[in-house]
Amino acid sequence: MINQNEFYSKNDEPKKYSKFRVWRKIRSEIRSTKSKRMELRSFALGFATALLAIFAFAGVFNLYTQLTIERLPQQVKINNAYKSAIDEFEKILPVKSFDPNQDVDLVLASQLEKMNDINTAINTIKNERNDRDFSKINMQRLRLLYKMKLETIEQIIKIEEGGK
């Protein structure tokens, strides 16, 4: 093996500030890459946090809705069931609502007008009462209106069947 001092000369050695200059470049490269990685990590963490918050909110909302439904008094649940059943029934009617410009039989027209009035009355009661007002009178009125609506629908069907 050859002695390193007999091989390398002074000209092979780096100049005075070379080491300092190169180290500064290396340090800045390492720092900039590290900060880019940090930014990326922060973004990923922020994104994950936002996602978690959305899921948590959705969960809380679902839970709230579920609890609200479960807490409704039995009477309201029955009324809601009435309403949705009648609404479904109404959907299959050939003439759903009264149109004065439409050429319909007078009897049928009066029934349709009656049903429109019933719907308006139902909506009025619903709009007037607050969500937690489950007074007996209101409940009875609502049930009566549902009953009338059902009977009117039945009449309309009969009239239509008779007209064919």
Binding site: D12, E13, K19, W23
Partner: peptide
Amino acid sequence: DSSYRKLFEENYNRLFR
């Protein structure tokens, strides 16, 4: 990361020449 400077100091001249 700052410890890397020690490795740099020890090896810079060797690698350079």
